[in-house]
Amino acid sequence: MKIKKLDSFMQGVFLISALISVMAIILIGIFVFGGGIPFIAEYGLSNFLLGEKWTPSNTPAAFGILPMIIGSVTVTLGAIVIGVPVGVLTAVFMAEFCPTKLYKVLKPAVNLMAAIPSIVYGFFALQLIVPFMRRLFGGTGMNMLTVILLLGIMILPTIIGMSESAIRAVPKSYYSGSLALGASHERSIMKVSLPAAKSGVLSSVILGIGRAIGETMAVVLVAGNQPRIPDSLTQGVRTLTTNIVLEMSYATGQHREALIATAVVLFGFILVINGIFLLIKRKEAIR
């Protein structure tokens, strides 16, 4: 009897714990959408999403976030171009080629990369990548390439970690079967094991995208933050996240609502990305 009571009590505790996180996400949703949707309705969705001018201190003010949407999407794609090949190949190396001694160093190093606060990455980029870019292309050195390089590095731990476990989860029989058919070690891994881990690798890429598009503190230091559509990779850029963090502290009235509405758009992006992630996971589960 006593045990039963304790049982149901603990069940309640677990239920409440689970509810807290669900409640948190619901509250965030209510706050962000509640704060942003009225502004979008008033200002006009297409004016807001497709407007090319962001000039909150003008009268009348303009709140177009197209430059920031383009900025966010471009730097994220760029980060993927740099981060995915490096990350996936590192994962293959760590799962299949790495000598045990080296692995003991490499694995904690990758885990440490994930734990470094993003502002530290920002300072690293400000001290190293920015002066390098300045010498290479002139200008302030705060340009899209700098951000892409930085984000490419920052998404590595996400991609490496998930891809590695996906590759390790592939049944050993696939690999030994391929060997038995006469394929070499490298060929078996690249043509059999890696393709079999495809959906796990793809998930890691999508989480990498999520991380890149949501990154704020590191990017704000090195992006230049000009609110206009960049013509080339060597120009500065402002992303959705940096737009919010730059101006939130002083914004009032409509300006503040516009920033919350920016968060709505960002939230939308993240929902889409996570939706795709879930779809891939489900496909994998069915298989």
């Binding site: 000039t55 201190s57 003008n58 009268t59 009348p60 302030t140 705060m142 704000v220 230091l221 230049g224 933050n225 000009q226 609110p227 206009r228 120009q235 500065g236 402002r238 963090v245 730059l246 101006e247 502290s249």
Partner: peptide, 19 residues
């Protein structure tokens, strides 16, 4: 009564004095 902040579009933006 319209006000236009004509700050150069290419200007890099920093959000603190230290920056």
């Amino acid at each position: 009564g319209n006000e236009i902040d004509a700050t150069y579009m290419e200007a890099a933006i920093q959000n603190s004095t230290d920056g």
